[in-house]
C-alpha cells in the first residue's frame, strides 16, 4: 500500500500543473522539515510557511520523510558540525549565550549539536535543492510528461482519492 501511495504521490506531483518553482520550493521546504526534529519551533514555522505559501505540498510530503531518513545517516556529521560551532568556536559563544537567554530561541533546541548541525545542512542544501528540483521538473516535463500521461496507470490513478485530494489542495 505504502509504495502505491508513494507512486501516486510522485506521479501526482510530476503531472501537476504547478510551476517548477512551486514544486522546487515544496521539495526544499520538505527537505528542511525532514532534517529538523518535529518538536521544535523551527519545525512549526516551516510547516506554517509550507501551508501558507503556494509551494507544492505533494513534493514536500515526499521530501520530508525522505530527508528524515537521510538525517539519520547524517547524525554523526551533524553532531560534528554542531559541536564545532557550539563548543569549539569561542567567538560564537556570546551569540549562543544571547540566544540561550532570549525568550523564544531555546524552543528551537539550537543548543543541541545534532539539531544545529542538521538545520545548517538543511539551510546549505536549501538553494541547491530548489535549483536541482526545478531543473529536474523542467527536464521531466520536456522529455517524459506526455509519455507518462499516456500510461494506463495514470487513468487509474486519476480516479483515486489521493489524486483527488492532492488536486484539491494544490
Amino acid at each position: 500500500m505504502f509504495w502505491i501511495k508513494a507512486l501516486k504521490s510522485l506521479l501526482g506531483v510530476l503531472q501537476s500543473s504547478d510551476s517548477p518553482y512551486q514544486i522546487a520550493f515544496g521539495v526544499a521546504l520538505g527537505a528542511l522539515l525532514g532534517l529538523t526534529p518535529l518538536a521544535t519551533l523551527q519545525a512549526t514555522l516551516l510547516f506554517l510557511i509550507l501551508m501558507a505559501t503556494k509551494s507544492n505540498l505533494g513534493a514536500a510530503a515526499l521530501a520530508t520523510p525522505l530527508f528524515a531518513a537521510i538525517a539519520l545517516l547524517l547524525d554523526p556529521l551533524a553532531h560534528r558540525i554542531g559541536y564545532a560551532l557550539l563548543v569549539q568556536t569561542p567567538s560564537l559563544v556570546p551569540l549562543w549565550t544571547s540566544a540561550y537567554n532570549a525568550p523564544l530561541l531555546p524552543f528551537t533546541r539550537f543548543y543541541n549539536t545534532v539539531v544545529l548541525g542538521e538545520f545548517l545542512i538543511g539551510l546549505i542544501l536549501f538553494v541547491p535543492l530548489i535549483f536541482l528540483s526545478r531543473q529536474g521538473v523542467l527536464y521531466y516535463r520536456a522529455h517524459y510528461q506526455e509519455k507518462v500521461s499516456k500510461w494506463k496507470i495514470m487513468k487509474y490513478l486519476k480516479l483515486t482519492k489521493v489524486t483527488d485530494i492532492l488536486g484539491k489542495v494544490k
Binding site: 526534529p37 549565550t97 533546541r109 543548543y111 543541541n112 545534532v114 548541525g117
Partner: peptide, 17 residues
Amino acid sequence: AQPRLHGMDVRFPVFNH
C-alpha cells in the same frame, strides 16, 4: 531527550534567569 535528538545539549550561562 527525544529519540530523534541524539547528540549533546550544550548548556550556556544563564543571566537574570
